[in-house]
């Protein structure tokens, strides 16, 4: 298995401040709504699976994420509590999630190698993977767009620096002709 960068373990051990999860949920939902508005093809590609609840278990992140595409809701959930109800789950390290999302790595290859694991409704996972792959997302650009000027420039520079230092894929990978 490929050795990939992970978030510092300290992040996993820090107890979240009391309002951290609801606040993070609001921010994540706003982010998801922005993406859904800009890329409506994601929802149309999901078809009936837009109603599914996807658990995203980023193993080196302090929270579990629950995404409900049709409701345009993305919420954070504590790891020590019982998992929120879901129809499908994708589990793996942050580096693998980001590499797949940004088109640097193939989702099936990450799955074959065991870096990503799936559970629940396999069709829903497949539909989500295909819809996100077609959307050609760039999380840095989406965050920069959400921040507005002049924060966007600092965010792009910061993202490039973090990507260089950490090895995480934080932007869409272009295919050079």
């Amino acid at each position: 298995m490929t050795q990939r960068p992970t978030l510092p373990p300290l992040l996993m051990r820090l107890p979240p401040p009391p309002l951290a999860r609801p606040a993070l949920g609001l921010a994540l939902t706003a982010f998801l709504r922005r993406i859904a508005a800009k890329k409506p093809a994601i929802l149309s590609r999901l078809g009936p699976y837009a109603q599914a609840r996807f658990l995203l278990d980023v193993s080196d992140a302090p929270f579990l994420l629950l995404m409900q595409p049709e409701a345009r809701r993305l919420t954070a959930h504590a790891r020590h509590a019982p998992e929120p109800g879901h129809d499908a789950a994708i589990r793996g390290g942050l580096a693998a999630f980001l590499a797949m999302l940004h088109g640097a790595e193939d989702g099936d290859a990450l799955f074959f190698s065991g870096e990503l694991q799936i559970g629940g409704d396999t069709s829903a996972v497949l539909a989500l993977r295909n819809a996100l792959d077609d959307a050609e997302l760039d999380l840095t650009e989406e965050l920069a767009g959400l921040s507005g000027r002049p924060l966007d420039r600092w965010l792009r520079r910061g993202s490039a620096l973090v990507a260089r230092k950490s090895g995480l894929i934080l932007s869409r990978q272009e295919v050079m002709p």
Partner: peptide, 10 residues
């Protein structure tokens, strides 16, 4: 055809 754009490009 069921694989990602990353697979296709590589």
């Amino acid at each position: 055809r069921q694989r990602s754009r990353a697979y296709v490009a590589q």
